[in-house]
Amino acid sequence: MDYLLLQMLNGVQLGLLMFLLAAGLTLTFGIMDLVNLAHGSLYMMGAYIAWTLIGWTDSFVLGALLALPATFLLGIVVEAVVMRRLYVRDHLEQVLATFGLILFFNELVRVIWGPAGKSIAVPAFLNRTVEILPGVPYPAYRFAIIVVGAVVAVLLAWLVARTRIGMLIRAGASNRRMIGALGINIELLFSLVFGLGAVFAGLAGLMAAPLTSVKIGMGDDILILAFVIIVIGGIGSIKGAFVAAMVVGQIDIVGRAFLPDLLKTFLSASAASSAAPAISQVLIYVVMAGVLVWRPTGLFGQRT
């Protein structure tokens, strides 16, 4: 029972990380109508920038806090140099251009930081366990991710639902040209939203770094999961992204944690351990296919 609880918490933690990534993606798509494959590169850049800054400042928290404005700036620059030109283009051209950006950023990282992966140590004050229930220890760092992720999710929900900028974001998502015609500076709005998405991606990247490793292409696989999440949730819907991220996180972790034992009952141990992650990945895509067959615009997507 405790094991199940721990794995479900891991699923929540993974889901929140992916939600951070998916939130930026669904905002840029919902408002700017932009397919940004390079969003995973911002996740990777966030982790690498944090690695450098943590090295300079010798403090995880300080380095991470400095990395956020840095990824915001990077997002603003990428938006101004490339993305701005892509808003009016069709999806194919966006896919192509942002695919090119992925290649660029992967090589850029190799040039600046070298081909070998980096690791960020779990900060000392979180390198222990907390008791989430009496007698049930849980790694403090993972718990911190859940807390930060949840706080950011709540902040984002508040930003979108309760503030003026959130009002503009929602208006932009439902009719871009109209809010432009109403005299809103949509260029500034787009820059801000893109920068915000970059910060979320960077935050997810740097928080994931101590759990995995900081390496080239780290954003590419998780990016596809993030796309799956926004497609399941309905493109442009923050709520949908959150729900879908939680579902995908649970499927992934629970699949990884419990499938091997289940498979071992009829497969060899090594076959089971290599098949289990594959099956849990496959399950995610099956869920997505199912949702799209049932609702072609996702769970919370706008009907056309």
């Binding site: 798509f29 397919v35 999806h91 896919v95 596809i224 796309f227 799956v228 497609v231 493109i235 060899s268 090594s270 076959a271 290599s274 098949a275 289990a276 992650p277 594959a278 099956i279 990945q281 496959v282 895509y285 099956v286 997505m288 296919a289 799209l292 072609p296 615009t297 996702g298």
Partner: peptide
């Protein structure tokens, strides 16, 4: 259609990709 089509074709390809990676 649109982005959904792009992503669902990608997702099905990933599905087979992961199956291939899981075939011990």
């Amino acid at each position: 259609r649109g982005l959904y089509f792009i992503m669902i074709t990608l997702a099905f390809a990933q599905l087979v990709f992961y199956v291939g990676g899981g075939l011990e």
